[in-house]
């Protein structure tokens, strides 16, 4: 099955039968998957972790009436500073706060439940791109209240890339509500 998934995105051919024996898929000149099942399971876990993280962040904010993104936005740095500052205006900040909470919960739910995961991954990547751009880890900017040390690449950027990968390797058919929908479709097709 994972072969199918790959074939959609990589438009590659699976080659030798020997490889199949060892559960190995080869994409000439591109990448080799040593263990299909292991990759699937890892991707499922990765998807669940990202969903877990987003949902928890969203819920914490949802249940805390004092929470606001104002401080984060107002202290924005880098090339898009003025855009983020404009979000702190009285008319915008409510929308920004609400949008952020809803987006976090949406991403969390889609990735955890395994449904519309590609949309979830896309929104997640967008959120993380915004977080990164508001406080980019550029060496010429002073980092405010950040744990760890970063040079261009920081955790937001890494999680952004994870979302991009999840978008390209969906796993909800393996673990998630999507599996049931797909099954239902199959059942319907068969009865028809």
């Amino acid at each position: 099955m994972i072969y199918g998934v790959f074939s959609i995105f990589l438009k590659s051919r699976c080659t030798s039968g020997t490889n199949r024996l060892y559960n190995q898929i080869e994409f000439p000149g591109m990448l080799t998957i040593r263990n299909e099942r292991l990759l699937t399971n890892s991707m499922v876990i990765l998807r669940l972790f990202i969903g877990w993280h987003f949902l928890y962040e969203g819920i914490i904010k949802l249940y805390n009436p004092d929470w606001t993104s104002l401080g984060y936005l107002a202290s924005a740095q880098g090339p898009f500073r003025s855009f983020f500052i404009s979000l702190t205006s009285d008319s915008m900040i409510g929308i920004a706060d609400w949008g952020n909470k809803m987006a976090l919960i949406f991403v969390g739910m889609t990735l955890l439940l395994g449904v519309f995961e590609k949309w979830g991954a896309l929104v997640g990547a967008l959120l993380l791109a915004l977080y990164y751009l508001a406080h980019p880890s550029f060496p010429w900017l002073t980092e405010v209240n950040v744990e760890g040390n970063y040079w261009f690449v920081n955790k937001n950027l890494i999680e952004f890339m994870v979302c991009v990968v999840i978008y390209q390797l969906p796993t909800s058919h393996n673990f998630g509500l999507q599996r049931l929908f797909d099954k239902k479709k199959e059942v319907l097709t068969q009865t028809n």
Binding site: L55, Y56, I59, L62, Y63, N64, P65, G108, G176, Q178
Partner: peptide, 26 residues
């Protein structure tokens, strides 16, 4: 069923943990 619905308890757990922690702090 397990693989299709497995995410639901996970979601419930995370939701509960987040809400409980927020409310307790508040």
């Amino acid at each position: 069923a397990l693989k299709g619905l497995g995410g639901i308890p996970l979601m419930g757990a995370v939701w509960w943990a987040g809400a409980a922690s927020s409310v307790a702090k508040k």
